[in-house]
Design a protein around this nucleic acid. Sequence first.
DNA 1: CTGAAAGCGCTTACAG
DNA 2: CTGAAAGCGCTTACAG
Lengths: 344, 344
Amino acid sequence: MGSGKTTSFDIAKRAGVSQATVSRALRNSPLVNPETREKVQRIAREMNYRVDRSAAGLRSQRSNTIALLFFEDPTSDDSQINPFFLTLLGHITRYATRQSYDVLVSFQQLSDDWLNEYVVSNRADGIILLGYGDYGRISDKLQRLREEGLPFTIWGATVPELEGHAIGCDNPRGGELATRHLLGIGRRRVAYIGSASDDAPEFKLRYQGYCRALEKAAIEPDPQLLMQTDNLELSAYDATQKLLDSGVEFDAIFAASDLIAFGVIKCLKKNNIAIPDQVSLVGFDDLPAATYFSPALTTVRQDTRLAAHALMGNLLKMIEGEDVTSPRIPISMVVRGSCGGRQG
Amino acid sequence: MGSGKTTSFDIAKRAGVSQATVSRALRNSPLVNPETREKVQRIAREMNYRVDRSAAGLRSQRSNTIALLFFEDPTSDDSQINPFFLTLLGHITRYATRQSYDVLVSFQQLSDDWLNEYVVSNRADGIILLGYGDYGRISDKLQRLREEGLPFTIWGATVPELEGHAIGCDNPRGGELATRHLLGIGRRRVAYIGSASDDAPEFKLRYQGYCRALEKAAIEPDPQLLMQTDNLELSAYDATQKLLDSGVEFDAIFAASDLIAFGVIKCLKKNNIAIPDQVSLVGFDDLPAATYFSPALTTVRQDTRLAAHALMGNLLKMIEGEDVTSPRIPISMVVRGSCGGRQG
DNA sequence: CTGAAAGCGCTTACAG
DNA sequence: CTGAAAGCGCTTACAG
């Protein structure tokens, strides 16, 4: 037995072939004779042999690993990850496993040097970036990554500069659908709670969709009905309170995300404002928790499974050196009780 | 410049030292002269150099990576991961980063061969197992891992056979606290919804705590008030309906987890049973979503940060060959509106 | 279809 | 404190 770990040489000796043949057989190379392959694989199984990933990675210059980086808002405490990205994590990981890729997970600050940290060190063949962040601050980095040809995809607004890299849903249409739904049940004073700035492109696009729906209904967007907030439940709670305190009248709210909608609901309840009787509400994301409230939250669903597959699919193509384009991830309205109207 | 990637030899040439010295300097070896170290590190920074992880891993036989394996219930669809473990994921990942470890995430079936897959292949130096599973089916595997000396920790009941490996909270005390709280506000017919079988040791322990609290109050546990269900919202919904249909009277429910409590709430609401007026409810875990319901859920909180640190801390000790013991993770009651009584 | 050989880029005894 | 050398366990031209 010896004391060392089992290597491909041990398998080779036992199988009566060369070590190179063992390597080929285990990787199902078509070069190797089927019978030889079977024999080698059987012996490898019997000896509980596993290819050493470090050795394979060093020689082939491929880690067969992708890094999944979550951007953290430094303002949020460290306990909560945005549930939307967590759903993505599940789909991405399963998809990766099916493609024989490992997934490395890490939380990063926007300012960190993840650019080199992962790909240059051969820890990962490519990276997926997740998180609503201050895009302005990372766009330089993304351009550099792009120029250096490092494979990466990112969840966000599908801007032309990041064609193929950026994957997102049709945010303007989502915003328009949500707002049109509120108008369709007779609401006229629809507030928007969420970001509408360049720092958060996807939210800005949702806001633009909101404006478009209003304009199509011949309603002028009222700046007093725009309450900017970042994507946190607590911030949304405060923003809602501010809207209430302003005394501006409104009969509906389009929350730019479900997380924001949750903060809105808590604040309206606190102020004894009835949903949907006094105020109708639509969110965005369709988090599992959207059904926990009474009434349950009407929201815009993004297809997270397709999103995950696009993020991984494009990344793997880039790793293979293929060309990619940015798909638009489908969205759909999920009507529950928080709007009232036709659905009661 | 050349076309190849930057290696430690390139740094060595530029710094006028040997490649071995570069290696030492970058790893902050005390063997190297401070000035030499500074110089080497500066040049490495300038050249954007990163140590190749595969090469380092191959040579040192250390991956500096831990694998985080989630057991999936094959019955659940692939979208939802138990939020409790997701919280653990966050804490574990951050802790690992601070210790310069990478975290590999994967979803596994209980039956998979993760035993060899990760550690033997040198993909990870140790593994953390997460998931309420059918312990009976993996206890053999865990014993084998243990005998082979492969480093692993697991979230679960702290049984003597897995001393040091298993990390869990004081489940019996949690069950007892929850039940005592319900008795304290005057409830006498307390149902238990959740598993009470050997397949799910932590839930069984919570059930035992429930029984103990009842017995201390001179109440005989009523088998009719025990509704077994696995740890899914939908299953819990069905179990609650079954309890209702049975016609057995009850004035309180101890749900073995928050996820189960969520299913209970939905079912009680559907049946127009008022919480807490007609039925008081306590959960277990204190998921973020516990505050989304009206009334908010009273529950038993587990300190997930300490849990994560214990899982990682013990694992790292095992990797270093040190001895470990299983700590008990602290719990506490979080009283919200779902019980009524003193807190209203 | 198979084998002998080279070499991926490090870390770590060993020697000084 | 530093350097020359070995070697970790593979994959992959190259030759047959």
